[in-house]
């Protein structure tokens, strides 16, 4: 067996451009997923608000229970049936964002529920409204506890983003496959792609560890 990395070197610019698209699409999905996760996570905390709880639970059940690739195809090939034509990039961000939002909502819910009951009681006994207590007392504590599981989720999102190459988005995976289609050097190119994903995921987890360490040092967590 002989390895030939020449196609990787000549196609380096394309791979970098693809990596940039991967970073863009995961950042945008991450933002969307976090917002959705926060809203739906909080929505699942109060079972007495039946409608809200029902909507939030249905969302989590549907999104977690079906393959991401099917969800992406529904957006990309299904929506045009209703004359909704979204650019591929938007479909990718929506699909990934909605998908990770379901998982993040569970992280948010778990973190909020892990804050001692006495914190809410103390806040409410001062006269705070439920909303103010959530914003100023509960969420700041919950956020710190969310960081480790969020790190996992962000890394999964980066890796899952490779699927959007199937929506014709020119991400890292897509650029790699283009190089393979003319050079036939699958092993070398996929190795190079794997390494680039590894760099992206490692950098993400390092940044999150820094943030967590900083918050803990600041005394935000006991």
């Amino acid at each position: 067996m002989s390895l030939d990395f020449l196609p990787v070197i000549t196609g380096w610019d394309d791979l970098l451009r693809g990596a940039l698209v991967t970073i863009e699409i995961t950042s945008a999905s991450l933002l969307l997923g976090s917002v959705l996760g926060l809203l739906f996570g909080i929505g699942r905390l109060d079972k007495s608000k039946k409608l809200r709880y029902g909507v939030c639970s249905t969302y989590v059940i549907f999104i977690r229970g079906t393959p991401l690739i099917v969800q992406l195809f529904l957006l990309f090939f299904g929506l045009p049936e209703f004359d909704i034509l979204l650019p591929a990039f938007v479909c990718g961000v929506l699909g990934l964002g909605i998908y990770s939002g379901a998982y993040i909502s569970e992280i948010v819910r778990g973190a909020i529920q892990s804050v001692e009951k006495g914190q809410m009681e103390a806040a409410r006994s001062l006269g705070m409204s439920a909303g103010t207590a959530m914003r100023t007392i509960i969420l700041p504590q919950a956020l710190v506890r969310m960081i480790p599981p969020l790190g996992n989720e962000f890394i999964a999102l980066i890796k899952n983003s490779a699927l959007v190459s199937l929506l014709t988005i020119a991400d890292l995976m897509h650029e790699g496959q283009k190089i393979i289609s003319v050079s036939y050097r699958s092993l070398e190119v996929y190795l190079a792609i794997a390494l680039m994903y590894l760099i992206l995921t490692s950098a993400t987890s390092m940044i999150l560890q820094r943030i967590e360490k900083h918050l803990r040092a600041g005394g935000a967590v006991q």
Partner: peptide, 29 residues
């Protein structure tokens, strides 16, 4: 909420807000 402003409560387990300084705990209300 308004009613509770007039009634202070002290708990067995303190329930201080761990992410706020001592001053922050007293001023947050």
């Amino acid at each position: 909420n308004h009613f509770r402003e007039q009634v202070g409560m002290v708990f067995q387990s303190f329930n201080l807000f761990p992410h706020l300084s001592v001053l922050g705990n007293v001023t947050v209300g």
